[in-house]
Design a protein around this nucleic acid. Structure first.
Lengths: 237, 237
DNA sequence: CGGGATCCGTAAAGATACTG
DNA sequence: CAGTATCTTTACGGATCCCG
């Protein structure tokens, strides 16, 4: 358990003992991103089984990365420790390294609309939307089969954004028709939202203000090194 | 193999796919430290099996971290790629984080003279020794049983340092009698060589010049944040 | 529904021996 | 020296079930 036993005199080896077990760094990312509850973390780390999440959280607690906390209502939760917080910049640097070095073409050849939407969901900045109201954005990927074509992001300031795969039957504030590759590329920071719009790979119809403030609320991957107006590498299909 | 399949839109997840498999980062450390040959890497990464090293090197090559090279004599070898070199500062930061945060008391309660000597061996700076000659340093840990008490470092400038567990029958230039905990603490950078000497936990007898230049050739863990004259936390047993 | 525990089949990792 | 081949052990991942 605690003695996977690399060379105990090499700090890197000690670090590996802690961060190497599968999912550990991703759980840490989720915690850093604000998740506290078990199922909240689980939603943020797609693919992990509850069994393994439970196990990892215990290991991480034992290693001093995570602390169990009880809310005033007695509800359980998890937070990062100071030690884990010190690790954040390292993980950030790791993400930037990966973003710089991972083959874009390979990534853009393995497209997945649902996963993309799930990721975007987590990065929508709801504070940019009018408070007290619900903002609904409908995404349409015309190239996909009907069952995978439409997605709805339902956002209220102060609440987590909902992703709907079925029509939520709510008034839509903004329709976005997108080429999947272009949307992926823009979201990953390999091109820009504006360049995809200019080349008609992204078409926005609806609330003018939402369109004008697009870059404010559709926050791109935080690992992108360059700002939003960087050069686009390539775009539509 | 390549599709352990975390979330493919999260750069950290992509990075984890690459660096998470056991031993990967330690192999990278060895390569960065100058190892090129298979068995050279293997010696530098204590505990790895040849099977796994072979497998990892292939995976790392496929991920773009490692490049196979043939020397002019046709001998096989491995080097890091530019992508791997960019990762070096991240690994360095990871090591510093671990060095800062890992429990010293716990580490100092699991002492291992042989592993310590093996680690020191790799960090001896032979360029500080007189060129063309062989310098032999004998370590004695009086507290240990006879079979684990004595170690010899045999160094020649320009060559890797040898660690002997049996008397090499060569003239000894410097005798070091040490308390194991103190030697470990000093080497890890949790105390200083001088403070351990002052408290008699380290006793050096032999070549005056070697003793005077001790800090020059006995290089401490490169992950220690503070310089050699930092405050000692604690020392002998 | 949140927060797990149990069981089981598969996929890695570890130990050892052996070969070109 | 530079690896392969083989075998055993451990970890992971999936499904199911339990409890408040």
């Amino acid at each position: 358990m605690s003695s996977d036993c690399y060379d105990s005199f090499c700090p890197v080896a000690k670090a590996c003992d802690i961060i190497e077990p599968r999912w550990t760094l991703l759980i840490l990312c989720e915690l850093s991103h604000g998740a506290t509850r078990f199922n909240e973390i689980r939603r943020g780390v797609p693919g992990i089984s509850p069994t393994l999440l439970s196990k990892r959280l215990k290991e991480m607690e034992q290693h001093g990365l995570v602390r169990r906390v009880e809310s005033d209502a007695g509800e359980p939760g998890y937070t990062t420790t100071a030690m884990a917080d010190e690790l954040k910049p390292v993980v950030q640097a790791l993400g930037k390294w990966a973003h710089r070095n991972i083959d874009k073409e390979v990534s853009l050849s393995k497209l997945d609309a649902r996963l993309l939407m799930w990721n975007m969901r987590q990065k929508i900045d709801t504070s940019a939307f009018p408070p007290g109201t619900t903002t609904v954005i409908q995404f349409t990927y015309p190239e996909l089969i009907e069952s995978e074509r439409h997605y709805w992001l339902v956002a209220r300031p102060g609440h987590p954004v909902d992703l709907c795969l079925l029509d939520p039957r709510h008034e839509v504030d903004l329709f976005i028709r997108a080429d999947l590759k272009a949307m992926t590329s823009a979201w990953m920071g390999w091109s820009t939202l504006r360049s995809e719009i200019n080349s008609n790979s992204l078409v926005l119809i609806g609330d003018r203000k939402l369109i004008a403030t697009l870059e404010t609320w559709m926050v791109r991957s935080s690992y992108a090194a360059a700002p939003e107006h960087q050069v686009a590498t390539r775009a539509s299909a």
